[in-house]
Amino acid sequence: MKNIVACIDNSAAAAAVCDAAAWVSTQVERPLVLLHVLDKSIYPAKTDLSGNIGLGSRTHLMEELADLDIQRSKLALEQGRLQLDEARKRVEPLGVKSPELLQRHGHFVEALQDLQEDTRVLVLGRQGEDHESGLREIGGNLERVIRTLSCRILITPPSFNKPQKVLLAYDGSATAKKVLYVIARSPLCKGLPFHLLMVGENNQKNQQLLEEARKELLEQGHADVSTAIKQGDVESTLLGYQKEHQLDLIVMGAYGHSRIREFLVGSTTTNLLRQSEVPVLLMR
Rank of each mutant, 00 (worst) to 15 (best):
V5A: 01
R88T: 08
T268C: 11
G253V: 04
C7S: 02
V5T: 00
Q246G: 07
K2R: 09
P163C: 09
E137D: 14
R88V: 03
E110G: 02
R58T: 12
L49T: 07
V225P: 01
R104P: 02
A254D: 04
S73N: 10
A22I: 03
P44C: 04
S50G: 06
L75F: 08
L61A: 12
G139P: 02
D19L: 05
M1V: 11
V33K: 07
S25Q: 07
I260Q: 12
G172R: 04
S276G: 09
L68V: 11
L102M: 14
C18R: 03
L209Q: 14
G54K: 04
K89E: 10
P163K: 06
V17R: 05
D224T: 05
E212D: 11
A21V: 01
P93W: 09
P31T: 05
L32K: 04
P193H: 09
R126K: 15
S159M: 10
V24T: 00
L239R: 02
A14N: 05
G80A: 14
D130Y: 15
Y181L: 03
N52S: 15
V145E: 01
K178F: 04
Q242D: 00
I42Y: 07
S159T: 15
G253F: 02
K230V: 12
Q71C: 12
I138N: 00
D171I: 09
L102V: 10
D67A: 14
Q246T: 12
R144M: 10
Q242T: 06
N10E: 13
D69P: 00
A22Q: 03
Q27E: 06
K40P: 00
V121Y: 14
E132A: 12
